[in-house]
Nucleic acid binder design. Structure first.
Lengths: 331, 331
DNA sequence: CTGTTAGCGCGTTCAA
DNA sequence: TTGAACGCGCTAACAG
């Protein structure tokens, strides 16, 4: 692979001149500029990133640590973040914690070794030693979607309170009184916020405050299905189910159909935080809070870029919209 | 951030000794080993990756370029690949071409700049100049799921012929004669292979050879919906639809329901290459070829690791299974 | 087994 | 504007 030395030799200039042309740092004569560029093109020169990083003490790489890349919310977020980062001249190193604090720690170490310039982080909720070390290191950090209590880093995430309000309003409009709520882990900020907003608002929207209708999973389909089963086992009746994220709703619907059969299950209306492709096909169709992953990813990157440029990054709550798919004439 | 020099000073040994202990290259005395390790722990030393890469002329980073990270098949594949790579001591740099050859080129350039050690590649089908340069550079490459005609690199992918056979057998068992087929781009190897297998096998399975029942999209929901509409517009009747990948099936179902309404659409059976979470909830449920993304990702990484170690990597077709969800008593 | 030293490729400083 | 020289942090080669 050609080095800058090869380029300089071919262009008949000194190494320094070639470097100046290629990294555009200072003025060069039109003549040497042209010759260096031509030589570089002929040789297919691509600067050696590690060498450049070593010298400049920055990598132009941002780390993105998400909790579960198979969750469509995060894969869309990752996609948007990547696009936005590229626009600002950064490469994204994507890591998937797989909802597992140990893996998150391992990746944070990898990020540190790679000397990323900044971190986009969707945390598990716990402050492990590695997380603490990362935060203490002075690395610019932005939280995406989830935050950690007491940590001073801007959060770019969904307006959970607003989303839950939309669900509550919908439940009331649909006349539901007995509603099963399947939340997420309380240690994850989105889980806690959505649960808190639901508990705070249910009475005012005419919804039963019977806590036997409440349970929580792990924000994955499996744990949510178990939670749904526990509620069913308690023998309280309900006419609607509210799943606190997309995977949770998936698990809940699965459990309902398995336990009650498709026909009985279809008598229960389902509403979800997070909108998924197939909700329109469910019977009955599932209404949902649209959680704008793209915007969160994009804004998060912009915030981090601001931080890196020494500017302020205040964080931001992204508004939700509600997709009402309830069928006319039923209630 | 602490350097190896700091560690050596603190441990009271020379730089080289610290390096030997920390990278475990050669034998060191138990004493210096203990002292270096202690010093490193106290300082929270993490080796500078770029510097190490520069010196060793390798990065221990693998590039993974997928065509669409928002496609669940690829997000699962990426997840599995990442896990497997980690087991072998590699970090994965994930890039998303977004089904766009230009973006793919941009990422290949980034990979080259980062000096990745090897590439896992799910190509668009076209050999752009950048793809050609990458292949010509001698970088070890493995294709995942898709290949490029005439390029000599091992492919780890689905056994498309087998999968299509399973669909054909199912269609025959269900007594379908008039089947609409929505394929993918012919330039993508999976699109071409699935289409070829379908065309080759349909007559033997008692399926109409009327080519008005054939169309193709872009392997995304939007293009597939358009293809479905074109078939509907031709006015030929059919009792089943076969979507050549998951997103295609999604688009097809959407189009059917929009054009025919949910009730009429429910009279048409749908079968898919790729299995998605929600197929069990569709009415009627959608049967599907299970496409083992995890295995493909895992095997691909192993193949690339073999290549990097100077061993052979023959490539492999991963067998499919079929999820028959057809409802008893109907046909 | 350990200390010393060269140099990976690059950007930047200092002189000219 | 340009050339020459230095050093980023690390590993490997060599000498002891």
């Amino acid at each position: 692979m050609a080095t800058i030395k090869d380029v300089a030799a071919r262009a008949g200039v000194a190494l320094g001149t070639a470097s100046r042309v290629l990294s555009g740092s200072s003025q060069t004569s039109a003549d040497s500029r042209a010759r260096v560029l031509a030589a570089a093109a002929e040789l297919g020169y691509i600067a050696n990133g590690p060498a450049r990083s070593l010298r400049r003490a920055r990598t132009d790489v941002l780390g993105l640590l998400v909790s579960d890349i198979r969750n469509p919310f995060f894969s869309e977020l990752a996609h948007a973040a990547e696009q936005e980062a590229r626009r600002h001249g950064y490469t994204v190193l994507l890591a998937n914690a797989n909802e597992d604090a140990e893996q998150a720690d391992a990746y944070l170490k990898t990020f540190a070794a790679q000397r990323i310039d900044g971190l986009l982080f969707s945390p598990q909720g716990t402050v492990s030693p590695q997380v603490a070390a990362t935060l203490a290191s002075g690395l610019p950090v932005v939280f995406l979607n989830r935050t950690i209590e007491g940590v001073d880093a801007p959060l770019y995430g969904t307006d959970n309170a607003q989303g839950v309000q939309q669900v509550l309003a919908w439940l009331q409009r649909r006349g539901h009184r007995d509603v099963a709520f399947i939340g997420g882990p309380d240690g994850i900020s989105t889980g806690a916020e959505r649960r808190a907003a639901y508990l705070a608002g249910r009475r005012a929207h005419g919804i039963s405050t019977d806590d036997r209708l409440l349970d929580a999973g792990d924000f994955l389909a499996g744990g949510a299905a178990e939670a749904m089963c526990r509620i069913l086992d308690r023998g309280v009746t309900f006419t609607a189910v509210f799943g606190a994220n997309g995977q949770t709703t998936l698990g809940a619907v699965r459990a309902l159909r398995q336990r009650l059969g498709a026909e009985q299950a279809a008598r229960i209306e389902v509403v979800s935080f997070d909108d998924l492709d197939w909700f329109e096909f469910a019977s009955p169709p599932i209404s949902a809070v649209r959680n704008d992953a793209s915007s969160i990813g994009r804004l998060g990157v912009r915030g981090l870029v601001d931080l890196l440029a020494g500017r302020e990054a205040p964080g931001q709550r992204v508004p939700t919209t509600f997709a009402d798919r309830s069928v006319q004439g039923t209630a």
